[in-house]
Design a protein around this nucleic acid. Sequence first.
DNA 1: ATGAAAGCGCTAACAC
DNA 2: GTGTTAGCGCTTTCAT
Lengths: 328, 328
Amino acid sequence: MSVAVTIRDVARQAQVSVATVSRALTSPDLVRATTRERVLAVAADLGYQPNLAARGLITGKTGNIGIVVPDLNNPFFTGVLKGVQNQARMASHAVFVADSDEDPAAEEQLVRAMAKQVDGVILCSPGIDEQQVRELADATTLVLLNRRMRGVPAALMNSGSGMRQVIDHLVALGHHRIAFLNGPRTSWSNKERRRGLRVAVQRHDVDLVDMGPFPPRYEGGLQAADLAMAEKVTAIVAYNDIMALGVLARLRDRGVRVPEDVSLTGFDDLMFGALCQPPLTTVAMPVVPAGRLAVDLLLDRLANRDAEVRQEELDTQLIVRATTAPPA
Amino acid sequence: MSVAVTIRDVARQAQVSVATVSRALTSPDLVRATTRERVLAVAADLGYQPNLAARGLITGKTGNIGIVVPDLNNPFFTGVLKGVQNQARMASHAVFVADSDEDPAAEEQLVRAMAKQVDGVILCSPGIDEQQVRELADATTLVLLNRRMRGVPAALMNSGSGMRQVIDHLVALGHHRIAFLNGPRTSWSNKERRRGLRVAVQRHDVDLVDMGPFPPRYEGGLQAADLAMAEKVTAIVAYNDIMALGVLARLRDRGVRVPEDVSLTGFDDLMFGALCQPPLTTVAMPVVPAGRLAVDLLLDRLANRDAEVRQEELDTQLIVRATTAPPA
DNA sequence: ATGAAAGCGCTAACAC
DNA sequence: GTGTTAGCGCTTTCAT
């Protein structure tokens, strides 16, 4: 392990003061070109890397951003993380990540613990209570992901538009009685998807059977499948892809054919939808772009603290694959 | 946004010096109990959170650890990340994450960039060249994940044992001619899996058809499926689950039944193996435990810099599901 | 047991 | 254009 080379070492070797080295690195136009080049050359030669913690101590900016997610095993959140990581790197920021294991209390702690080491944090927390979010927004610069709240910047995905496309698609196929399998009632996403659905349905002659809530996982789908079939629907709209996969498995076990006997749609488009059999008709959530957007919003807010709060919405897109067809 | 409360504020309010506050927080037994309690009470009251960057500047420890992975969209790496995050939190460390987008050159940069802000980094890089890893190990405390290299601590998964179980299983079913679909030739994992396979095969009367390399993704499986069938094998061992899924899809399209006409196994056990149809027989890689182990190794090394280098191996386990059966 | 003071590596006035 | 110096928030001698 090589010993750390500091700004002093560079200064000595380049025969200048530490201030000049600092300037050469951070405000190049403040030093004469020849000096700058000499300094930079020495720095490169010595393999000098500025200590960002020390820099942050004085500038007040750490060059880091944090992201808190409920579960790193969920491809939805890792997609977001990927986008965040990407965009952060473009902006020369490093990213702290924390996984709360779906525990809202932990989320609050994690944000607070991060607060001192980052310039701001991106919070993906469907569960945490609104009042607490406000307190956190007070403790650090916060950007919400996939959740809208007055006065807090947010990167959003417009599930309403996706749901409208789902309903238009199903109605065009000839469906009139459709089940919606709710995810967690309190989650912002579920509310949004449900709202989009209800709006879309009003424009058509459709019976909407509102079911659940179910756990937003494979097991939730297994459970929901039987209940939905009992309602004699011809199409099932699941809260998300994972649940849809559970429905698919359960229907197959019961000998119900998809899409011949019943149509099925998911939501999120998390990779395995495309890989499974039959491939799942679903709505693609732009998770990676949303992660990128969140970073942009955060950096923008940091640079421009008293501009108005931006909440931007990305469109979602129906992906028709093979689980939807005209009713029998 | 509330202004930061520093150690000075606490000191003033508690009527002690900053040194005493510092001691009360980090070496409680150096201050009188009554003083300590008073200080702690004030700190809690003011919502004081020590600035870790400042602390790190003087102690030389940041309390952070880094992890560099090739792709955050790959559930293998996010599983590891989950384990890392988990264990780091137990040890009150924060986690920096960086995604190299499968670019070995970027990996090196990312590690170097992190080096100053972390106590050590966990590197998951099948691709990066051995010499460069050594240089990185010189620049920071490094722990390798799923890759063995002399003198560098490593958290390993013993794919050999899993492969032996696969072959024993297939042979017990009556297979004699088996294809192995190679992943990237240079990847440590592929070498290990292949080696395990060859050893296992020697103990039985089996023709091993070594095919590929193929890209370790869905498309690689699509491509490999036809080639494997042309070799008249009765069982196909894919480098990993994703490739196996590609094989499965292609075989289904061709009307080849799995497992009736040909058996198929994957490797990794990445969730969707269980969800697909038929559920995939595969080898479970303990990715989350491996992440945890990597953190332990890192922390251990940090605490005990001149102990011998630990390289620990976790066992892998065959998971028999529904894609393997006796040959026709 | 506690305080005063030095200093971690760096940037930002302020001089010249 | 460059050097000198103070100080970011904290820990850690060294005194007392």
